[in-house]
């Protein structure tokens, strides 16, 4: 007799007004606030390129640097007296400049907190490198073996990485 349908179709069901029931541990309640962000889903390859672009470019530039360095050294070793040896010897500087440009561009794209972290990490690596090289220099003065200057840059890079880790953790 009743005209009420016990189970109205979903389309005919009245729209649920906002906050019909209070939050309850027994009833599943969900916020009706609209979800504003519709994030576009990029295909996997594009997102890898977007996310790791700097790392990929840096890796490729370093690879080019190492290949040209090895090639240059090999060529010069077999032609030690050629008049063009200066040109070949300085050739690895070109991919090294590429590495530098990738690096500088990556720095400009950092956000403000990342820039601050990098500034502190660079300061740390500069100071710590100075400390360590001067310290070892004093030791060389009293007889420890002489180390090549080429150790300075790797040392600085390692300390820069350590500094980045330290100062990143500080903001976590």
């Amino acid at each position: 007799m009743s005209e009420q349908h016990p189970n109205p179709e979903p389309a005919e069901a009245p729209l649920e007004p906002l906050y019909t029931h209070p939050a309850s541990p027994f009833l599943r309640t969900e916020s009706t606030a609209p979800k504003h962000v519709d994030m576009p889903v990029l295909p996997g390859v594009a997102s890898t390129w977007v996310t790791y672009r700097t790392q990929i470019e840096f890796g490729l530039a370093m690879l080019a640097y190492l290949m040209i360095l090895v090639g240059s050294v090999t060529v010069i070793q077999s032609n030690p007296n050629a008049p063009w040896r200066y040109v070949v010897a300085v050739l690895p500087v070109v991919p090294a400049a590429l590495v530098l440009s990738v690096f500088v561009r990556a720095l400009t794209h950092l956000d403000e907190m990342q820039k601050r972290i990098q500034m502190q990490a660079f300061g740390f690596s500069l100071g710590a490198t100075a400390l360590l090289t001067f310290g070892y220099g004093f030791l060389e003065g009293v007889g420890l073996p002489h180390l090549s200057w080429t150790f300075v840059l790797p040392l600085m890079a390692i300390l820069w990485g350590v500094g980045t880790a330290i100062f990143t953790l500080r903001y976590r």
Partner: peptide, 16 residues
């Protein structure tokens, strides 16, 4: 906001 997720986290926790 055009920043990293770590930056949002640091702002929320009051560290930055």
């Amino acid at each position: 906001l055009g920043v990293s997720r770590q930056t949002v986290n640091a702002i929320e926790t009051g560290k930055y």
